[in-house]
Design a protein around this nucleic acid. Sequence first.
DNA 1: AGATAGCTGTTGGATTTACAACAAAAAGGA
DNA 2: TCCTTTTTGTTGTAAATCCAACAGCTATCT
Lengths: 219, 219
Amino acid sequence: MKCALFEGIEGEALEEMLRCLGAKRVAMERGQTVFAQGGAARQFGVVLSGAVQVRQTDYFGNQTILAQMGEGEIFGEAFVLAGMERYPVEVACQARGEALLLGAEPLRAACPRACASHARLTQNMIAVLAGKNVRLMTKARILSRRTTREKLLAYFSQLARETGSRRLRLPFSRQELADYLCVDRSAMTVELMRLRDEGVVRVEGREVALGAPEGEEGG
Amino acid sequence: MKCALFEGIEGEALEEMLRCLGAKRVAMERGQTVFAQGGAARQFGVVLSGAVQVRQTDYFGNQTILAQMGEGEIFGEAFVLAGMERYPVEVACQARGEALLLGAEPLRAACPRACASHARLTQNMIAVLAGKNVRLMTKARILSRRTTREKLLAYFSQLARETGSRRLRLPFSRQELADYLCVDRSAMTVELMRLRDEGVVRVEGREVALGAPEGEEGG
DNA sequence: AGATAGCTGTTGGATTTACAACAAAAAGGA
DNA sequence: TCCTTTTTGTTGTAAATCCAACAGCTATCT
């Protein structure tokens, strides 16, 4: 099993840990509900194979896909660990496979048995939650921009910061980028072309270079 | 000290915990930088009094206010705990007061001294991170909607879910609500009036009631 | 009461976006 | 190579948003 949550925990210690968490291995068929929206929030999950989707239906019946998790990723942990009584979302199988369902109690209260790897597990969970936090903050910050232009520039700035360079490579196709920025694809392309024409960015497929108004290109 | 991070830790145990975290108490004057953007991410903080703002300056020099933290709230923890080398944001004092600066090592690795309340601290941190996670997810979900109308309805749905009722009370003034939804205030008011005229919602000041097309008002 | 300041709803014009439909280019398979 | 599918850029129109300015209302203070 390859999963950030259990990093550094192997063999017998892992088995013990899984017992402590009350792990249950379940098979998932496409379309099957893993956690129901409004259901009692008692467990979180790890995708062993296949994929799950996190969705939400609002008061008016509109359904939104919030995220998709693949192998090794965990889902539902935030709700359980935040002490929420019910899941505000639905988790459903998107591609058939297996998942591990885990109870969160050992992460919320002192483990009475003090399993050997317990400390490591909580540290891993902290790292996972902190990482998700950073990514969510980044996304919220980008979506806070009002215009497509500003969203593009905010996103490029973000990638440039991560890369540590003015040059960056988009991890998305145009359609995926538009979905990530929550804007219309064609309108986004128009804006992207405008930014190019104005010399704000240089674009070539997925390669983007920022600024360079002073001609420091050769660097 | 009133702070979710140290809930259940008091007296001598708290003192010991603070020593273990290398706590430093610092006075802050308005405008003073607590953590510098791009600076080495080694510590996180707790606001003891006053307030701090989290800001970010992007590649093009545009500054954005991301959040404001008041008494008892913690800041910067996500970056340190996610193992980032540098702060991607700046934290600055917004209202004079005091803060506690803490090292994160005891939360990232096994505490060699195994302080008594260590387990409790990590549990608290997990709860804090999970709670922030849920709130960030909520915000990202709302901002994912493209139109002002959809943002309003998504936000109302969210509040209705939290309240468990069709009736809800906005925690914001109109301007604050517009800022939260990242839209123009006047355009938002127009859309809000339209929703009212269409009978989708009933609005009266900060009081909002959803739907009720079947006249279940009296319930 | 009177003055001041803040909040809210309204309006009109300029800008921006969504949406749909299409053509060119690129990628992949037979 | 040919054909199919996907991706990307373009265009035009309708709709939504931003922006600025203004009027009515409320709360607060003197």
